Amino acid sequence: MIINNIRRVIRLKGLKQCVVAEKAGFTPNAFSSMLNERKAIMAEYIPDIALALGVSVNELYKKGDE
């Protein structure tokens, strides 16, 4: 769910994944691994990712059409 929401925000805002990764404090490869489920997204990463995306943490936990 969180991965899908991160991807959705990146797509809707027209952001580059590598730019979001660097703003959130990750290497592009590490962030890509998280989005491709090769590496876990730890709970403590979520606030930094949300900030890099310009959304609230709640937005990343949203289900479907909430």
Rank of each mutant, 00 (worst) to 15 (best):
F31P: 06
M42T: 10
L15S: 10
M1L: 09
G14K: 06
V19T: 11
K62Q: 07
A50K: 06
G54A: 05
I3M: 06
I41W: 06
I6A: 02
V20Q: 04
Q17I: 11
E66I: 04
A50F: 05
N36P: 02
N5W: 04
L35C: 03
A40L: 14
V57W: 07
F31A: 02
Q17P: 14
I10H: 08
S32C: 11
Y61T: 02
C18N: 15
G25L: 04
L35W: 00
I2Y: 09
I49L: 11
G54W: 03
P28N: 07
I41A: 09
A24H: 07
I3V: 11
A52R: 01
F31W: 09
V19M: 05
E59W: 12
E22N: 05
S32I: 10
E66H: 08
V19Q: 05
I49Y: 13
R7W: 02
N29P: 09
L53E: 05
R8A: 06
A30E: 14
L35V: 03
K63D: 12
L12P: 03
P47Q: 13
A50W: 09
L35T: 00
N4G: 05
I3C: 06
I3S: 02
N36H: 05
I49E: 15
E37R: 14
E44P: 00
I41E: 11
C18H: 07
L53Y: 00
K63I: 08
F31D: 02
L53A: 15
A52G: 07
G64S: 15
M34W: 00
K23H: 08
